[in-house]
Every structure is written in structure tokens, then in C-alpha cells.
Design a binder for these strands. Structure first.
Lengths: 189, 189
DNA sequence: ACAAGTATATATCAGTGTGATATATAGCTT
DNA sequence: AAGCTATATATCACACTGATATATACTTGT
């Protein structure tokens, strides 16, 4: 029933790097894996409770500091096993939901300028993301060179960024093809 | 609150091509836009009810035939306006959730063979999809040639298929890069 | 000094989307 | 007659989203 809860694994992965609170987890997601994964409080807190009940993670309440109490969670031995098992399993093919392709599909029902407008916008947006990813790539490559063999684990981070780059290039190329075609159609009219 | 209901627009788009029942809509989605959009009964039926209440679509009960009664829905004038408006609006950038990139990101914690296994599987899977899309592309291009100017509206269908092709090529190239790197690493070890 | 803004920290809720299951009829095959 | 597939609608538990509520503490400008 319903799809499998993937938030659990995302959280296990984050906690396995560093024991954290719900707030820390959210921050990590926003800063480090935001380009391909997203979590929100509305899911993080209930899932933390659930996983604690299942014995996958354990809580230590941090009362040091003057800030509000902090629930710091760590992965248990059992949780580590679950994470390893998930990592080894081939990923499920996700349910596709590309809103922009839905609009393209039905766009024979509106004037060409309408779709051309937002296609150009999308292309610019993708260009921006591409530059951003290329910046992150250079950053990681720099760190890897500095660290030598000790920095080899960074390859997997690099791999996720490389995907973003391949993906954005493809999308930009596609935009160019479609925009060019629609523009030549407009000229004729 | 929550994200916007996009099922409404998908259904409006389908009904605007041809008045249909919930069952027909599901069939259309599975057959024609499955590669970039997915709908299920659990959402189609309640949304149909809601849109009927809002005056976007109207129902005619089809009692002809021996089959169970069929509720056939058509888009009203108001519904057409809503659809046009949506089509003209730039699409929202979706929340990314790539499970496979999550696995890649955390894969420094497992043996290289584990990830190599499913990466090779994924590459094969993408190759299969690429061939499928290329088949559909040839089919559409054929129809467009046969129909001449009357087949121009098919360009938008072609565009969605072209996106699939660009996307799959990029993913395959990315797989090659990552697989090659990990294999050369394995040899050294 | 104090108001305003930002960061830390947790919790909850309405709503969207998923996948399975329930129900019932009709036609086709063997 | 039994078993399978297609037609047709409905419902439910659960996953995920985005906004909002609550409360404390640090920072920054005037």
C-alpha cells in the first residue's frame, strides 16, 4: 500500500555521516543534497519518531547550551544494516511527473507565443543551474586534488553533480531544438 | 498549503481532446503520456467529482451498451478557459527526488561492486527506453509526413518524445562515465 | 538600550499523490 | 462451466508537501 517511505533511508544516510537533530537534517538536505533530494519538517519529525520506535536510531537529549533542547539521533547497529541493505538494492524507477511536458503535450491548443515565452524562460533557468553545478564541480575537484587518495570518497558527491550537468545540458539542447522549430514556424506565419 | 493539484489540468487536457470516463482517462494516460505523466484511479475519481462541482466539466451518463454505466465527462466553457490559462503559465520547478542519486551520494559506505551492479542494470534499462522512444519518434514522424500541414499539431507530441531521447542519452552517458571510473578503480585494487 | 530580524528547534495540519484492494458486470477462451 | 481479461467505479492507508504555530536566543542597526 502506498509507495515505500524513502525519507527513512535519506535520514539514515545523513545520520550515518553525523549524528544530528531534525533541524540539522533539514539543514544538511538543503545545503548538500538539495539538487536531487528534498526533505521537510512535516516528514522528518514523524519519521524520526517512527525509526526510534523501530530501533534503527537512538536519541540523546542535548541540554548543553542555552538554546532549546536538542534531540540528537544516531544510527544503531540495526539501522546501519538497514542502510547498507538499501544501498545495495537497485533503485526503483520513479513515477514520472514532468509538468512542463504535460504543458508541451497539450500546447497545440494555444498560440505559439505562449509556449515560446516560458520555454525561453526555462532555458535561461537551466543555464543558471548548469553554471552553478559547474562551480560545485570545480570546488569538489579542487578538494579531491588537495586531499589525494584520502579524498576519493568525494567521487560519489562529484558523481551526483556530474549527473546534474549532463541533465541540464540535455535539457538546454532540447529547449534549443524546440524553440528553433517554433520560431521558424512563427516566421512563416 | 500543500502543492497545487496538477491532476486537474492533466484531466482537463485529456477531456479536451476527447470526452471520457475515469476509466478512459486512466487508459489514455497509460498509453499516451505514460513516459512523462502518471495518473491513478485513487486521484482521478475524486478530482472528477470536484471539477464537476466547480463547473469545469459536465457529466453525461451513458447507459447504452450492456456494460456497467459509464460517466462520460466533457470540458465546459469555463473549464476550457482554466486549461488555456494553465497552459500559458510557466511551469513550476518540481521538487527533485532522485532515489538513485541518493544511493550514489551515500555509496562511499558500501563495496564498489554493489553500486556497479545496479548502475550497469540502470544503463541497460535506459538503453531499452531509448530504443522505445526512438521507435515512437519514427512512428510520429511517419504520420506527420503522411498528413502534411494537417499533421503539424503532432509536433508537440514529438517534442515530448524528443525530450525522452535527449534525457536517456544523457543518463546513459553519465552511467558510462561513472561505471568506467569505478571499474578502473576496481582494477587497481 | 531596545526593536527588528535571523537562526535554532520542534510540532501539526490540510491537502496532493500512490498503490493496493474491493466490487460488479461482460465477453472471450478452452 | 471455469477461468481469464476488459470495463467501470470507489475507497483506504500511507507517502509527501508546504504552510503555519510556538518559543528561545543571538545579531545588528539606530
Amino acid at each position: 500500500m502506498a509507495r515505500e517511505n524513502k525519507t527513512k533511508y535519506a535520514i539514515l544516510g545523513v545520520l550515518n555521516i553525523c549524528p544530528s537533530s531534525g533541524y540539522d537534517i533539514k539543514k544538511f538536505c538543503d545545503q548538500s543534497i538539495n539538487h536531487f533530494w528534498n526533505e521537510n519538517y512535516g516528514h522528518i519529525y514523524p519519521v524520526l519518531k517512527q525509526m526510534e520506535g523501530d530501533g534503527w536510531i537512538s536519541k540523546i537529549v542535548d541540554t548543553t547550551g542555552n538554546r532549546p533542547n536538542k534531540n540528537v539521533f544516531s544510527v544503531t547497529t540495526q539501522g546501519k544494516k538497514v542502510l547498507q541493505e538499501w544501498l545495495k538494492t537497485p533503485p526503483a524507477t520513479p513515477q514520472a511527473r514532468y509538468e512542463f511536458l504535460l504543458k508541451v503535450f497539450f500546447s497545440d491548443q494555444i498560440p505559439v507565443e505562449s509556449i515560446l515565452g516560458w520555454l525561453r524562460e526555462s532555458r535561461t533557468f537551466c543555464k543558471g543551474l548548469l553554471y552553478e553545478y559547474q562551480g560545485i564541480e570545480q570546488e569538489i575537484r579542487g578538494k579531491m586534488e588537495d586531499l589525494g587518495p584520502a579524498g576519493e570518497h568525494l567521487f560519489f558527491r562529484l558523481a551526483t553533480v556530474r549527473f546534474g550537468i549532463f541533465n541540464m545540458r540535455a535539457t538546454i539542447d532540447w529547449c534549443d531544438e524546440i524553440i528553433n522549430h517554433l520560431e521558424s514556424k512563427e516566421e512563416k506565419a
